[in-house]
Simulated scan of single mutants.
Amino acid sequence: MQKKDYIIQLLKYIIMAIVVGIIVGTIDALFGRVLIAISEFRTIHYQYLLPFLPIAGLVITAMYYVFSKLSLKGMKLIFEVGQQKTDAIPLLLIPLVMIGTWLTHLFGGSAGREGVAVQIGATLSHALGRKLNFPENGRIMLVIGMAAGFGGLFQTPLSATFFAIEVIVIGKMDYEALLPALASAYIAAFTSHSLGLEKFSVAIKNTINLTGTKTIISVIILGILFGLTGRLFSFSLSKLKVFMGETIMNQYLRIGVMAIPLAALLFIIHGSRYSGLGTNIISAGFAGQTIYSYDWLLKLLFTIFTLAIGFQGGEVTPLFSIGTSLGVILGGLLGLPPMLCAALGYAAVFGSATNTLIAPIMIGLEVFGGADMVLFVIVCVIAYGVNGNISIYAQEKI
């Protein structure tokens, strides 16, 4: 391709990125603000809502079967399009995944939200690309949409950009999409913030110097344990989804029956502490409030079970919760500042589970500031290495 043609094509993608960023940022604001309101309502009235979690599961499944069964593939469908295995993402996926996730959270399922935002962004950008005849590289349009979805919801455009270009294919950075993805992520973040969606950020006051042997060893241990935790989450989620699908093939039966013990346990154990996103645990970790030694493990197990039986939502915010609570506990055991370790866990467990490296480092920068960037780089690199190419997004491939 000649330089002139390349510049023209790049400008076209940037224009599309701006359009996608505005639209996806607007949808993210709606989705995020409703989800916050739902979560606050459930926290107050969980004893009346959790018993109906199995019924909510049946309603979610029925919605997909009636309106767009193909959309049940969710993120799998996005990766299939990115790998050119298929070229169809139904626009109905957008309202279905939004409503399905709202219902999951309203009735107390343990799930995240980023998968929803990424699916919304990718679906919309893919549809616009096809409508406006962007045949040159459909994957770039997907990356633009994924970055916008993540960036608009979390308002971390740098991490959103690298998340999108790292995660679409394992072991390969799609640098061709870097500039348009960055533009869409920033526009989406600005749009959603302008519409009232707030960014989560924490100022870390305590830090450590990597001068003593004991401190260096402790930081290495953190990276290893965070990496193993992300690997455990990804491996267990993948295996349990397969097991549930093969053991209870009827999806109505699977979600309706298995949600009964899920709801009961969520109700009994600390009164819905492990329902929803896990932002309550994140807030507790950074506010110096009570964090139980088993918080990270129970949040991990409840989230895996919720998603494996068919409820809608994402994994990233629960991963932030798991990393935060584990970091607080490990900080106390290793003699390191618990809040700093919580921040490192927040980023590194996410990076390990998603098999991304630069994205979690950028999360550290955008959420916690740049004062401890060296620590974030070291811990995230170790966690990434320990992961061994296992990802929550099983459809990625080299």
Score class of each variant (00 low, 15 high):
Val219Trp: 06
Val219Asp: 02
Val219Tyr: 05
Ile220Ser: 07
Ile220Pro: 10
Ile221Thr: 08
Ile221His: 06
Leu222Asn: 09
Leu222His: 09
Leu222Val: 09
Leu222Phe: 12
Leu222Tyr: 08
Gly223His: 06
Gly223Ser: 06
Gly223Val: 06
Gly223Ala: 07
Gly223Thr: 02
Gly223Lys: 08
Ile224Arg: 12
Leu225Tyr: 03
Phe226Tyr: 04
Phe226Gln: 01
Phe226Cys: 02
Phe226Ala: 00
Gly227Phe: 13
Gly227Ile: 12
Leu228Glu: 09
Leu228Ala: 12
Thr229Phe: 00
Thr229Tyr: 05
Thr229His: 04
Gly230Gln: 01
Gly230Pro: 10
Gly230Tyr: 00
Arg231Ala: 02
Arg231Leu: 06
Arg231Thr: 01
Leu232Asp: 01
Phe233Lys: 15
Phe233Tyr: 15
Ser234Ile: 03
Ser234Lys: 13
Phe235Tyr: 07
Phe235Trp: 09
Phe235Asp: 00
Phe235Leu: 11
Ser236Lys: 13
Ser236Asn: 05
Ser236Leu: 08
Ser236Trp: 07
Leu237Asp: 01
Ser238Leu: 11
Ser238Glu: 04
Ser238Cys: 06
Ser238Lys: 12
Lys239Gln: 02
Leu240Gln: 07
Leu240Glu: 01
Leu240Ala: 03
Leu240Ser: 05
Lys241Arg: 13
Lys241Ser: 10
Val242Gln: 07
Val242Cys: 03
Val242Thr: 07
Phe243Gly: 14
Phe243Leu: 15
Phe243His: 14
Phe243Ala: 15
Phe243Cys: 14
Met244Asp: 01
Met244Leu: 15
Met244Lys: 13
Met244Pro: 13
Met244Cys: 15
Met244Ile: 14
Gly245Thr: 02
Gly245Phe: 03
Gly245Ile: 06
Gly245Cys: 08
Glu246Leu: 04
Glu246Thr: 09
Glu246Pro: 09
Glu246Lys: 14
Thr247Lys: 09
Thr247Glu: 00
Ile248His: 08
Ile248Gln: 06
Ile248Trp: 04
Met249Cys: 11
Met249Val: 10
Asn250Ala: 14
Asn250Ile: 15
Asn250Leu: 15
Asn250Ser: 15
Gln251Phe: 05
Gln251Asp: 04
Tyr252Trp: 02
Tyr252Phe: 12
Tyr252Thr: 11
Tyr252Cys: 12
Tyr252Ser: 13
Leu253Gln: 11
Leu253Phe: 14
Arg254Tyr: 07
Ile255Leu: 04
Gly256Glu: 04
Gly256Pro: 13
Gly256Thr: 11
Val257Arg: 03
Val257His: 04
Met258Ile: 03
Met258Cys: 10
Met258Glu: 00
Met258Phe: 07
Met258Asp: 00
Met258Leu: 10
Met258Ala: 03
